[in-house]
Design a protein around this nucleic acid. Sequence first.
DNA 1: CTAGGGTTAG
Length: 664
Amino acid sequence: MARHGASSGISSHSRRFSTAVNPINISLLSKQLIQLGRINNPDTFPEITHQKELQASSLTSKLDDCTGLHQIKQVHAHVIRQGHDQSCYIITKLIRTLTRLGVPMDPYPRRVMELVQFRNPFLWTAVIRGYAVQGNLSEAVSMYGCMRKEGITPASFTFSALLKACGSVGDLSLGRQFHAQTFRLSGFCSVYVGNTMIDLYVKCGSMECARKVFDEMPERDVISWTELIAAYAKAWDMDSAAELFENLPKKDIVAWTAMVTGFVQNAKPQEALEYFHRMEMSGVLPDEVAVAGFISACAQLGASKYADRAVEIALKSGYSPSGHVVIGSALIDMYSKCGDVEEAVNVFESMNNKNVFSYSSMILGLAMHGRAREALDLFHYMVKQTTIKPNTVTFVGVLTACSHAGLVDQGRQIFASMHQTFGVEPTCDLYTCMVDLLGRAGRLQEALEVIKTMSVEPHGGVWGALLGACRIHKDPDVAEIAAKHLFEIEPDVIGNYILLCNVYASAGDWEGVLSVRKLIKEKGLKKTPAVSWVVDENGQTHKFFPGNMNHPMSDKIQETLEELVQRLTVLGYEPDLRSVPYNASDDEKRSILICHTEKLALAFSLLTTSRDSEIKIMKNLRMCQDCHTFMRLASEVTGRVIIMRDNMRFHHFRNGACSCGDFW
DNA sequence: CTAGGGTTAG
C-alpha cells in the first residue's frame, strides 16, 4: 500500500482520493495555485494539490505554535524550500504570526509580502493590520493606496483593519472617510466594519456617535452589544450598560464578563458577584477572564470569606493559580487586600508563569503590608533576573514601598532610573508617590517643589498626598496651599476637608478648625461616619460605630478597654488629645478617643477570640495617631498580633511595633 | 477580521 509521503506511490492513491471530491470543494490553496498559474486544473494534477495541502496545513499549524522570531524564520525557510513562498495563504499566515509576536512590519514582514507576485486582499490586509496594531497609521494608509493601485478590491475586513489603524492614533476624521468608502464600494457596511467603527468612536471618547452607529446598524451581533456595554462601564455609566445588557438577546461569556468587570471598575463588587452568580445560573460556564473578574470583586470586598469563595470558584472552573497567570495575579492582589500577604506570597511562588501583573501585584501587596525591603528586593530581582519590563504600576508599587519605609534616596534614584533606564514616563500617579515619599519624610518644601516642576498638570492625588504629609508633620502653612488647590479640583470630597481640619487641630488652631467646619456646612457635605468591623470564625460580620452603645456586649467592651488603658499607662501610654479635632475639654477628648471604633473592635476581638489567633480589624477611614499608638502598645501587653486595615493600607502590630514603622 | 482581562497612588 502506497503511503502519502512516498513520492513514487502517491499519485494513484491521491488521484482516487481527490477525484472523489466535488469540484466546488476545491481548497483555497488549489484555487490560489490555479490563480498563480502553478497548476492549470486540479483534476489533472491532484497529487500536487493534495501534497501541497498537507504541507500547507502543517506549515500553518507550525506558525500557530511559534513563540519567537527565530522559530518563525525556521518555518519561513521550510515555506521557501517547499515552494510556498508565492502562496498568499501561507504568507498571510506568516505575516499574522509576525504581528502576533510584535515583530515590527519594517523590514521583515513587509519584505516577505513584497516578494509575492500576485497579492490578494487577505495578504494586503494582513500587512495593513500589522501596521495598525503597531500604531503606524500612515504606512497602513500607504499600503492601502498600493493595494488600490494594483487594482485589488478591498474587502470589508480591509476597512476594519484601516479603522483599527485610525483608532490606534485616534484619527476620527480619516476613520469617517474610510467608513463612508465602504458604502461607496459595496453599498453596505458589514457588521465587522460597524463594530470597528463603534470601537473607533469609543476610543475617541464619543459615546453618542458610537451609540448612533450601533442604533443604525442594519445587523448587529453580540460583539456590537458587548463593545458598547464595556464602553458605558468605562465611562462610569453602569445604568446604561445594564440597560443594554438586559436587552441583549443572547448573552455570551464575554458579555457577562463585561458586566462583571464593569461593576468592579465602578467599585461595586457586590453587584459584580450578583452578575457572576446570574451568569452561572443561566448555564454559561466561566472562563479565565470571568473568574479573574470575580476574584477582583472579592479583592474589593476584602474579607476572607469572599477570598475562600473565589478560590473555590477558580478551582471548580479548572483554573489553578500555578498554571494560569491571570488567575494567579488576581489572587495575589486579593489575598493582599484581604490581609493575608503570606498567602499572596505562596500563590506568587507557586506560579509557573509570571508576568508584569504578577510582579506588580506582589510588590504592591508587600508595600501595602509594610514589607518594603522584600518589595524592593523583588523589584530588583525582576529587572535583573527576568526579561519582564516594569511599567507604571510596578513603579507605583516600588515607590510606595520606599515611601512607607522612609527610603528617600532610594526612591529618588528609582524615580530617576524609571525614565532613563526603563523608559517609563512619569505620570501624575508617580508624582503622587514622590510627593508622598518626600512629604512623609518631612521634606514638605521639597515636595512642594516637585509639584511646581511637574511635567503634567497635578491632579487631586498629588495635592492630597501633600496635605496628608502636612497632617503627619503638623504644618498648617503648607497645608493651606495644598488645600487651596485640592478643594478646587475635588470640591466635594469630604475627606479632604477633614484632613485640613485635623492639621489645624493638631496645631491647636481652633479658628482654623471652625473655618473648615463652616466650609463643610456651606457645601452641604456630610461626614462619612466611622465604622470598624471584624469577621468571626462563622463568617459573621460585627460592626462597631463610634460610642458603641447599641452593641449587646458594650458593657464588657467598655470594661475591657478601661482595664487595657490601665495596663498601657504603665508602658507610658498617654491619650493623644490632639487627635480629637474638637475644642473640647481634656476629659471629653479622652472619652471620645476611647470610643473610636477600632478600639471597640479590638476589645470585642480580645473577648471573643482565642489567645493564639491573629486579630483582624477593618476600618473605613484613616486611623488616628492615638489609635495607632494604642494598638501598638496593646499588641505588646496582650502578646497578640493585630492586623488592622484602614482605608489606606494594612498595619501589622506585633510586640509593640507596627509594620508601617509609624510612618503612615 | 470586530468584543470582556488581573496590578495604580493621597
